[in-house]
Every structure is written in C-alpha cells, then in structure tokens.
Amino acid sequence: MTELAILWSILLAQVMLALAMAFALYRIVKGPHAQDRVLGLDALYINAMLMLVAFGVRTANTVYFETALIIALLGFVSSIAFAKFLMRGEIIE
C-alpha cells in the first residue's frame, strides 16, 4: 500500500512540476522585458532541478542528486550573470 502511495505521489509531483516548468517557459516566451525572461529562466531551472530530484526518488539512483546540485550551482551563477549584464551591459569589468 505504501509503495503504491509513494508511486502515485511521485507521479502527481512530477505532473505538477512539469506544469510549473510549462508556466515558466510561457513567461520566457511571452515576458514583456528581458528581466521577466531572466526570472522565467530562474523558475525554470529550479523546477527542472526538482524534477530531477523526483526522478531520483523514483529510481532510487543517487546520480540524480549530484546532477541536481550541479544544476542549482550553474543556474545561480547564470542568473547572477544575466542580472549583472542587464544592469551594466557587461559581465566582466
């Protein structure tokens, strides 16, 4: 019974995360300004990382957790770089 519960809850969580990714993608495509698109990208990478974590729980494979950490790190750096670029027009001064 508990196995069934966890399988269904993982499926539900993955559907919700996929929906959240679709919403973030909509903001990237539609976003009126560049800042909105960067925000959409930020939301997208967080949800993608959570999707990978959900896959990791489903398959009981630890590789997904390393991947999630790397995505979190690179996503943070990229959104900082984007914000800096929007603020100054250059990244490395």
Partner: peptide, 26 residues
C-alpha cells in the same frame, strides 16, 4: 511505512508550492 507515507505527503505539498510559485510567475 510511516516514513514512506510522510515522504509522499511532503512531496505533494512541496510540488504544490512549486506549482503555485510558477502560477505566480504567470
């Protein structure tokens, strides 16, 4: 079994928070 049910519950709540965040972004 209790831990598994707890994990299922927390997972659904966390995913709904993420979904609500993305809804706010839209």
């Amino acid at each position: 079994a209790i831990i598994t049910l707890l994990v299922a519950l927390i997972m659904i709540v966390g995913a709904s928070f993420s979904l609500l965040a993305a809804l706010g972004v839209i």
